[in-house]
Amino acid sequence: MKAEILEELVRARAEKRPAVLATRLSDGVEKLVYQTDTQTENWLVEAVSEVLRADKGRVQADPDGEDWFLNPFNPPLRLVILGAVHIAQPLAKIAELANYDVTVIDPRTAFASEERFPGVTLVTDWPDEAMETIDLDTRTAVVTLTHDPKLDDPGLHAALKSPCFYIGALGSRKTHGSRVERLTEAGFSDNEIARIHGPVGLNIGARSPAEIAISIMAEMTERLRT
């Protein structure tokens, strides 16, 4: 690999631009191709878009029969946590370890403080405004943790209208029951509401905030990978 290509790839990752490194196996010739790149050969444009979508590299022959290794570099996954509560602290840490970019939303600045969440992106706008500024795409997970419908519901509305891959809402079965009623009243269908994981997390008997964070992270991983 050429040092310039390595630097360009590191730059693309810092700028969160999806890129594919294509290496010809016979002689090591390399091309860094971006998703938006239409200047390159047809077979490569298609292959690049496929490996980025699958988020999985592969060896593929070009029209001349030469094998290329195509390695996709997607931007990190994203986790939006609504509620800068105790569980959010270990969840933000675990998610960062799993290579997520974490954003914590809470208008209560006593909760959403740099001391409680060092290095995490904090947004202290009201959830409905805050959610509008975030692109909830297919590589994003949303978890609501406030227990307060005033704060949680706007986040759930935004998540349900998006293609995000995971929606989790903290609360008991009873709490979730009244949540479902409110969302139905707000016009969401049963199928849409069924996207919400509530009670949140895999049932591993978690008790402490860190254990609950692990159960949420495990459920997110399951939704993402299976």
Partner: peptide, 20 residues
């Protein structure tokens, strides 16, 4: 990759291995 680039900047020689 970020680590490899940082090592290069520090004047080290670096190699990469990739599962293909």
């Amino acid at each position: 990759l970020e680590q490899a680039a940082a090592w290069m900047k520090d004047g080290h020689k670096v190699a990469l291995a990739t599962v293909i």
